[in-house]
Each structure stands twice: as structure tokens, then as C-alpha cells.
């Protein structure tokens, strides 16, 4: 697990800040970690569908 640490008043993430990196220069080293994080390939990692709000309320 890539748990995040706290530095001073910020909670830091391991997600690379690519906002100012020209799109043409965003390379594999930049996107691999992000893609692994938000598109987990491991079958054990289940991203659950949420919401499914219904009229029970």
C-alpha cells in the first residue's frame, strides 16, 4: 500500500502533478503510477459501484 504521509500542513499524495507538464512530454514514468492507481489491474482490488441511490429514502 502506498500510504500517504503528512508534511507540515499538507497531506501529500503520490500522484504526480502533471498540470504544467506539456502533454507531449507526459511519459510512461509519469503516467504508469497514476494508471495503476486509478485503473487497478489486480483482480483482488475491487472498485465498487457506488451510489445506486434508490427510493428507499
Amino acid at each position: 500500500m502506498n500510504a500517504s504521509g503528512e508534511k507540515q500542513a499538507d497531506v501529500t499524495s503520490d500522484v504526480r502533478d502533471l498540470r504544467d507538464v506539456p502533454l507531449s512530454l507526459v511519459g510512461r514514468a509519469d503516467f504508469d503510477g497514476i494508471v495503476r492507481r486509478i485503473l487497478p489491474g489486480s483482480p483482488e482490488v475491487r472498485r465498487v459501484p457506488v451510489a445506486a441511490f434508490n427510493s428507499s429514502i
Binding site: D17, L23, F31, D32, I34, V35
Partner: peptide, 13 residues
């Protein structure tokens, strides 16, 4: 703002 990075990463990927 963090979503901007995710989108750029996905597009490059």
C-alpha cells in the same frame, strides 16, 4: 486540480 493530472496521465497513456 488533481483530476487535471489524472486526465493528462490517462490521455498520454
Amino acid at each position: 486540480e488533481s483530476q487535471r493530472s489524472l486526465r493528462r496521465a490517462l490521455l498520454a497513456a
